[in-house]
Design a protein around this nucleic acid. Structure first.
Length: 525
RNA sequence: GGCCCCAUCGUCUAACGGUUAGGACAUCACAUUCUCAAUGUGGUAAUCGGAGUUCGAUUCUCCGUGGGGUCACCA
């Protein structure tokens, strides 16, 4: 059997990381079995469609290395995102226009699996209100369920607008097996509402469009969000009405959702920009690290292995490892994964990725993206850092890789890297000497600083010939002479030169800065 | 509220009905160290509650409890 999976989002918003995690599973399931992964644009809700959202989501999904084999080829899509395929078009409004669903609707109507509903929106709203007030189940009351042929004809002749509803049979069990949770779920058909499958404007709703397209496009595994679980009986009845045998239906599975740690029990929200698909990339997280973490939120291999490249994940993927309960996102674990991947890079790769990040993600943020970015880092001098990033990109300084080598193992993400190397280029402006790290030398601060300055100026002009041993023993000697702990002597130098009590290895940093610059900084502030 | 789903350390998770309930992140301690990291070693930490089945239950059943989903001419 040719495995075909699909991801069928609606263009009603900008995707967040949960979106990527679902694509990842669909992608892996298809690739693992040598099948195809399809992207379908479910834009039947024209009122809520946000122009550009689909292109945005496609662009960033591909940014993660997750590409589709078949997909929309709409003219309004950037050319590189257009795909097409044997079942084109892959955009549902286009399919509607092409009459793709007409035959299915007619079949359903003809064989009595569906019926025209002439109820107005007003009546429906009233009905719902009444039911709510009476604390009853809100559902369609079936007024048009059994209209006579004459009544229907009369309404049609009078051009009364109508929707099409699925006719859920009474007193039956509707059951299905979930591909992900492996649950056998059973519903009493009397609990299932006659859902609208075609709106009064003639456009099918998700129920019809998605299910029918899955069949037509020969989708074998339909994995979707758990919000669809409750609608599954509607879909099963739809298949029956369409005369689609179980073996020709896609197997359905329902994903868990990733929860936002900031709002316990609630899923990542499209309104929360910090989880948007582009957010972490812009903050300097590596796509392979994000992907790796996403793999493990909702899925686990039997051996508890944690590190996977995309290829390895595809190889190891097994639907049986899918979890049933909703995982919660953990920033700390994300940080850990990123550190692991950052440290895995060779120095050349690290440098390359750093520039790539600056150029492709950091400095190309859209205004609204930048706003969210600034909000996230409001405690930092963002402007200064962005200006610094632009300068780096323009200058491509020769010594950058030496500097990167010093910060590679102490950075959580590339944004950290940028912050940690800035002191090589920009002397600290105003130093805060009133920090706890200097408490123990507070009394002898100027004395120590003078001695250190003197010592540094006694070193050879060319910092390349300095030796670590000679420098270190000289520094320690100052501490001995002044009765100050060695560490404090180093700290005074560090703060004077780097502006902070944290820095990459001091000696190597001094060497890179050079004698002149080091002395200038010691004499300033 | 009806229906449906879920429930192992703080978090992600592992455990043919038999394990001192394992791993990872986080956290704590120690080691290393001129800072911050990285690294190494060790520690704290969990089967939601109650019945039942069984020689034996994290695992199976039922009842609670808690959380989630859904009940639109939205997807």
């Amino acid at each position: 059997m040719q495995v075909r999976t699909r991801w069928a989002p609606s263009p009603t918003g900008y995707a967040h990381l949960g979106f990527i995690s679902r694509v990842l599973i669909n992608y892996a399931l298809a690739k693992k079995n040598g099948g195809q992964f399809i992207w379908r644009n479910e834009d039947t809700d024209t009122e809520r469609t946000i122009p550009g959202a689909m292109a945005f989501n496609m662009k960033w999904t591909r940014e993660f290395g997750l590409d589709w084999d078949e997909g929309p080829d709409d003219e309004d899509l950037p050319e590189d995102l257009r795909k097409g395929g044997p079942y084109a078009p892959y955009t549902q409004t286009k399919r509607t226009k092409a009459g793709v669903y007409d035959q299915a609707i007619q079949t359903l109507l003809d064989n009595g699996s569906a019926y025209r509903c002439f109820c107005t929106k007003e009546r429906l709203a009233e009905l719902r209100e009444t039911q709510e007030r009476a604390k009853q189940q809100t559902r369609y009351d079936g007024r048009c369920r059994n209209l006579s042929t004459e009544e229907i004809k009369q309404n049609l002749d009078n051009k009364v607008p109508f929707t099409v509803r699925i006719k859920i049979p009474k007193d039956r069990k509707i059951e299905f097996d979930d591909l992900i949770t492996h649950n056998h779920v059973v519903w009493d058909s009397n609990e299932v509402d006659d859902a609208i499958i075609v709106k009064s404007n003639g456009v099918p709703t998700y129920h019809l469009a998605a299910m029918y397209d899955d069949v037509v496009m020969k989708v074998t595994h339909a994995l979707r969000g758990s919000e669809w679980l409750a609608s599954t009986p509607i879909h099963k009845i739809l298949f029956e009405g369409l005369g689609i045998k179980p073996e020709d239906q896609a197997q359905i599975g329902h994903f868990t959702v990733i929860l936002d740690p900031n709002t316990p029990g609630k899923k990542m929200s499209k309104r929360n920009d910090s989880f948007r698909v582009d957010a972490l990339l812009q903050r300097g997280y590596l796509k392979e690290a994000i992907l790796n973490y996403l793999m493990l939120l909702g899925w686990a291999p039997k051996d508890n292995r944690e590190l996977f490249t995309l290829e390895e994940f595809v190889e190891a993927f097994d639907l049986n490892g899918m979890q049933k309960s909703n995982p919660t996102w953990d920033d700390k674990k994300m940080d850990w994964f990123n550190g692991v991947y950052l440290r895995k890079l060779s120095l050349d790769q690290f440098s390359e990725r750093f520039y790539e990040w600056v150029e492709k993600y950091l400095l190309t943020m859209l205004p609204e993206e930048e706003e969210a970015f600034r909000k996230k880092f409001e405690s930092l001098p963002v402007d200064s850092l962005l200006e610094f990033a632009r300068r780096l990109l323009a200058d491509k300084p020769a010594r950058l890789s030496e500097q990167l080598a010093l910060v590679q193992e102490r950075a959580v993400n590339l944004w950290d890297v940028l912050q940690q190397i800035q002191f090589f280029y920009d002397a600290p402006q105003s130093i805060n000497w009133d920090i706890k790290q200097l408490d123990k030398v507070r009394e002898q601060l100027s004395e120590v600083r003078a001695k250190v300055t003197g010592f540094m100026s006694s070193l050879p002009e060319d910092s390349k010939v300095w030796t670590h041993e000679a420098w270190e023993s000289g520094m320690r000697a100052i501490g001995d002479a002044l009765g100050v702990k060695h560490g404090d002597v180093f700290m005074v130098l560090r703060v004077a030169v780097c502006g902070t009590p944290f820095s990459p290895p001091l000696f190597e940093s001094l060497q890179i800065l050079g004698k002149e610059e080091v002395l200038a900084r010691l004499n300033a502030n």
